[in-house]
Design a protein around this nucleic acid. Structure first.
Lengths: 143, 143
DNA sequence: CCAATAATTAGACAGAGTCCAATTCCTAGA
DNA sequence: TCTAGGAATTGGACTCTGTCTAATTATTGG
C-alpha cells in the first residue's frame, strides 16, 4: 500500500508500464503515458497533445488519438464522459467515481470503496455490466 | 399517480406545458416539445431536427439547438451525457438513472426511488449538488 | 543486414454544436 | 386596424473534436 502511495511515475517506468499492458513502448506512447501518469490528472486529447508537444512538435494528432484509444482498449486508462464537448482520459483505473464542478470543468475522484449503490435492477442473462459511472455534478452556490 | 401514468401528451397540451415553464409558446417550440414528450424518448438534437422537419422543413438547426437549450435551462427537459459524440435530451425530469447499451446506443430509464446511493462525501459549504448521474454501461455478452 | 510488420504522419474529412447579422413574427398600445 | 419594438427564427459560415487514409518511417525477428 505504502509503496503504491509513494510510487512516483517517471519516464523510466513508462516502458514497463506499457509492456505490462501488452503495449509496445515507442517514443510517442511513452510521452503520452508520462503526460497522464506523472500528473495523475484528467486530460482531454487536446491537452495531452499540447503537453506532449510543449517544446517542439513531436507527436501528431492522429497518434495522440490512436494511442489514447489503445491505452483504453488495453485497460491502462479510463474514459470519463461528463463534458458534452470532449472526452477526458483518466490514468486512475481503480474503482472510483467523479465529482464534476460544472462551471470550471474540474474533476475530482471519489473512491468507490466508500460508496454503496444498492437496488440496481437485474440485468437480462445475455447482458453484462461494462462499468458503472457515477457523476456528482456540483456548482458554486450563487450568493 | 394514475392520472399521470395515463397522461398522453398531445399537441394541444404543449402550449400549456411551455407556459408552465415560463416559455413563450411558438410554433417551433411546440413542435420540438411535442417530438420529445409524445415519444417519451431520449433524442439527440439531430433526431429532433429530423422528426420536426419530417414532411416539409419548418425549423432551422439554430432554432432546434436554441430551443433545446432553453428547455434545459427552464428545467423542462434533462440532458443525458453518455455518448461522447452527441448529447441526448430526456423529457423525463423525475429522478432517474440510465442504463446504456454501449453497442446499440439504447438508453433505458431506471427509477431513482428503487436505488440507494450511500457514502457520498460531504460537499464544501459553498458548493451545491446540481444533479447525480448514475449510468450503468452494459453490453451484450459475446458468445 | 534485410524483409516484414508495426507505428506514425499530414492533411483531408465528417459531424456536432455555436455564432451572427438579417429577417420575420408577435404583441401591446394608439 | 395599424405600427413600433422586442422576441424569435433563420441560413450559412465557422469552430472544434475526432476519424480516416494513403504514404512514410521505425522496429524487430531471423
Amino acid at each position: 500500500m505504502e509503496s503504491h502511495a509513494v510510487m512516483h511515475y517517471r519516464r523510466d517506468n513508462m516502458a514497463d508500464l506499457l509492456r505490462s499492458h501488452d503495449i509496445n513502448p515507442t517514443h510517442q506512447r511513452i510521452e503520452i503515458a508520462y503526460a497522464l501518469f506523472s500528473r495523475q490528472a484528467h486530460l482531454s486529447a487536446d491537452q495531452v497533445m499540447m503537453i506532449v508537444n510543449d517544446r517542439h512538435a513531436e507527436t501528431s494528432k492522429a497518434t495522440v488519438y490512436n494511442t489514447l484509444k489503445l491505452f483504453l482498449e488495453k485497460g491502462m486508462i479510463r474514459e470519463v464522459i461528463v463534458d458534452p464537448s470532449k472526452v477526458f482520459y483518466d490514468p486512475n483505473i481503480s474503482p472510483h467515481h467523479h465529482l464534476y464542478e460544472v462551471d470550471s470543468g474540474e474533476l475530482t475522484d471519489i473512491d468507490a470503496h466508500q460508496v454503496r449503490i444498492e437496488g440496481l435492477p437485474e440485468l437480462p442473462e445475455n447482458m453484462e455490466t461494462e462499468g458503472i459511472d457515477l457523476i456528482i455534478r456540483v456548482r458554486r452556490k450563487k450568493a
